[in-house]
């Protein structure tokens, strides 16, 4: 296995850690970038939504992608879900290069292995179809069950697994008859229906009441244990990232800013942006202290951006170099990576 993954693109700034060999069912993203043209024509401005993002998710691992709006996290999910194509970079599932798949059968196999849970429980279901339709379609398409009876059984089993009982009644309902939390459970069931290897969860609990969130997160954890699933958990909430994910990546302005094991990241953050985020998280056990880190302004525009660190304008530790040169990723510990000039140009791991 080890030999197969060493094709490193020397032009890419990616953080490919050779100590983490890609397993047979791992998802590897390398140098992924996505630009959106604004307007038409050759001279159109480009919105740089995602820049040079690389990470690996091993089988049975949960990786959290944390960022605010405009950080590119949803773009990353949509690229991996093949809802759009990247401007550059590649994606590998196991050994296979996903973006070069032309064969219909292989494309469908990819969809079977990589599923997605969407953020909005209100618009991710077609209002004219019953719940059973939403679950039956993927099952039929990927031939998980052969007959109508088998499909029904499978659907009831899935609904039961995600805690929606009685399954027969729920299956016959229309989406508007269920609450937000129930719909997200159906969304999980839908993703599980085809027995995938990895589930991309795009802010699955952000639109639910806080009292419902834990139930859904616990369900996701339990399923991961039972089925050895991997998750890419996308969120703006650091606390839930720490709760559910072993490793966390912090995104800002489309760039990976920091990557570390979740506990390490939260307890000993390195990047100034991570520190800022942590100080802003409301905590039940901590009062509302006035922060001294009152930063000015909004997210910097990523339209035709100039070189330099995207966070420079808001960074309390800004230096001159930060507005001129885009920092590259450096590895400061075996499992910790930071993109920041404060950490100098240590030797990148090969």
């Amino acid at each position: 296995m080890k030999g197969a993954i060493m094709k490193q693109d020397p032009l890419s700034n990616s953080t490919h850690d050779p100590m983490m060999p890609a397993g047979e069912h791992s998802l590897r993203v390398n140098g992924l970038s996505k630009n959106f043209p604004l307007g038409t024509g050759v001279g159109a401005k480009q919105l740089h939504a995602l820049e040079d993002v690389s990470f690996t998710i091993q089988q049975g691992e949960i990786l959290a992608l944390v960022g605010e709006s405009g950080s590119g996290k949803s773009t990353a999910a949509r690229l991996i879900a093949r809802l759009m194509s990247p401007t550059s970079g590649n994606i590998h599932l196991g050994d296979r290069d996903v973006l070069s798949i032309r064969n219909k059968r292989l494309a469908r196999a990819y969809r079977k292995n990589v599923q997605m849970i969407f953020q909005d429980p209100f618009s991710s279901f077609n209002p004219v179809h019953r719940i059973e339709h939403h679950l039956a379609r993927p099952i039929r398409i990927h031939e998980i069950a052969k007959s109508k009876g088998e499909t029904q059984e499978h659907i009831y089993e899935l609904l039961s697994t995600v805690g929606l009982n009685p399954p027969r009644e729920i299956a016959r309902k229309y989406p508007y008859e269920l609450s937000g939390g129930q719909r997200q459970r159906v969304a999980i069931a839908r993703a599980l229906a085809v027995d995938p290897q990895i589930v991309l969860a795009d802010e699955p609990v952000s639109m639910l009441d806080v009292s419902i969130r834990i139930g859904v997160l616990n369900l996701m954890l339990r399923l991961k244990e039972e089925r050895n699933l991997s998750y890419l958990y996308i969120t703006h909430d650091l606390a839930s990232a720490r709760y559910i994910a072993e490793r966390t990546i912090v995104l800002y302005g489309g760039f990976v800013m920091e990557e570390a094991p979740s506990d390490e990241l939260m307890l000993r953050p390195h990047h100034p942006y991570t520190k800022l985020l942590l100080s802003a998280v409301p905590d039940v056990n901590r009062g509302f202290e006035r922060t001294s880190r009152h930063t000015d302004g909004e997210v910097l525009s990523r339209i035709d951006p100039l070189p330099g660190c995207p966070f420079a304008a808001r960074c309390p530790n800004r230096m001159t170099v930060c507005t001129e040169v885009t920092p590259s990723i450096t590895q400061i510990e075996p499992k910790r990576f930071v993109r920041c000039h404060l950490f100098g140009e240590q030797v990148s791991s090969q």
Partner: peptide, 14 residues
């Protein structure tokens, strides 16, 4: 129902 960023890490029931 609130996971903590810097407290102890434990399973929540909600």
């Amino acid at each position: 129902s609130f996971p903590s960023v810097n407290g102890e890490r434990r399973k929540l029931i909600g």
